[in-house]
Nucleic acid binder design. Structure first.
Lengths: 254, 254
DNA sequence: GTTGAACCTGACGCCGCGTGAGGCGCTACC
DNA sequence: GGTAGCGCCTCACGCGGCGTCAGGTTCAAC
């Protein structure tokens, strides 16, 4: 009595796979049917025996656990792997990828929130927000970011909304002073340094670590949040001299 | 005054990308350098201007958020996308993938635990455990699985360890009765039906839904946990007749 | 002028199939 | 016994984002 067999289409329907997938498994030698029709001279239809179906079932199971086809093949060959070890390694890998995705999810969530807070969401705003996010993640430690978030709540949204304008005004004033040849030791320059220091303090909350990270960022990057930091450097040096002249000490200094 | 430029290697070092990646971005037209050396007749070295670097920076940022190169290109072309919408869609996608991975992680964890419980972890045990897991996930709802887990705690591990042997003994006895031509209505057959019923009840805890799922599984699958269910069917029909004769009602029956 | 490092182009590989194109095999009905 | 038509066959490209040779050119320094 001839053995019961199935053709690709039937097997595909039963297992939920596609015919193409079965062809693929055959092509890579993972599961080749034990028989074929028309054994004469040409390639006949694939005929899968019960044993083939059983193997396919195992393949499907291992794939559902996220194993690659090559791993499935190795595993079904019984090449002396310790099942527990394999599962644990695989689990570790899955967890790592899950953690990465979770991380990405958190970034996207905070971006979403940041975009909700912004009034106009132009593509420019979008790109600048993203760049700022990437930047802060590059220079601030997670604890520092947590502190900055708390700090933002303390000072309130109005103060944050006012900040860009205050900075723009200050930049303009500093540039004017420099262009006018005002000496950094001049009281007017010292006043500008005080305003600068206050704005930075409003942001950092006086935290020395955050202050340091902020400075490192401005020293290493050429653009921050769409601003040309490189072009700001002379201004910063000028204000730095004025700060020393005014006797203002920044956080963490001595 | 000629503009400041960077070569691929310098840019790669600064951005953390590889030279190949920059070549790729050039090849697909995502970021082509504004200038090249040796403008004569041959292909000279790529020279990236500050504007190119800025664009690259944006590309890197968008990629860190998990966007594909094609999406990045579309997005930088400003083809009228709503940033918030794009972010939300992308976030939804990321969450979906994270959920899938989490699901996979849970499956692997319970597999890990199951393997820890098993004494000998041969490849066969491994494959059977997996097949059983896939099977139960196919036939039982999550709530049913939770009940089964609680049920397993109630009866304790010793009872679970004893079950396979009890089933094997019962199968042998039933087969012997059938081979001996014992009528299903015979008291001896009815006694076998009672043993069968008790074993099933120990597993299902008398839950009608679980009972039904279990029966559906045995009706639709040809192999369960390495057992040849198809070959068991005559036995099951025999026991079913004996059950009716013994007046035992299964859960959910009227 | 020569060396050596950095650059160039072109091409294949990966992973797990999807998606055709173009042509036989099998079955059922007339 | 012919033929319609569906299911099967092989072959081959495509995807995403580069890694990784191979074999040649260009640049900067000495």
């Amino acid at each position: 009595m001839p053995e019961a067999t199935w053709k690709v289409g039937e097997l595909a329907a039963r297992t939920g796979l596609t015919v193409r997938t079965l062809h693929h498994y055959d092509a890579i030698g993972l599961l080749s049917p034990s028989a074929r029709t028309g054994s004469a001279h040409q390639a006949g239809h694939r005929l899968y025996t019960a044993a083939d179906v059983a193997r396919l079932h195992q393949i499907v199971c291992l794939r559902q656990l996220g194993f690659g086809l090559e791993q499935v093949r190795e595993y079904l060959s019984r090449a002396g792997y310790d099942p527990r070890e394999v599962v644990r390694l695989h689990l570790a890998d899955v967890r790592r990828r899950a953690a990465e995705l979770a991380d990405l999810g958190r970034r996207l969530e905070s971006l979403d929130e940041a975009l909700d807070r912004a009034d106009a969401v132009s593509p420019d705003t979008f790109l600048q927000t993203i760049e700022a996010m990437v930047m802060v993640e590059k220079y601030y430690t997670p604890e520092q970011l947590k502190r900055l978030e708390e700090r933002a709540k303390e000072v309130g949204p109005e103060a944050i909304d006012r900040a860009p304008q205050q900075w723009a005004d200050l930049h303009a004033d500093v540039r004017a002073a420099m262009d006018a040849g005002v000496d950094p030791a001049d009281p007017r320059a010292q006043e500008l340094a005080r305003r600068w220091f206050d704005l930075v303090s409003a942001f950092t909350g006086g935290d020395p670590g955050i202050f340091k990270s902020l400075r490192t960022m401005y020293e290493n990057e050429d653009t921050v949040a769409g601003m040309d930091v490189a072009a700001m450097r002379p201004m910063m040096e000028y204000v730095e001299k004025a700060r020393v002249a005014a006797g203002i000490r920044h956080p963490g200094e001595n």
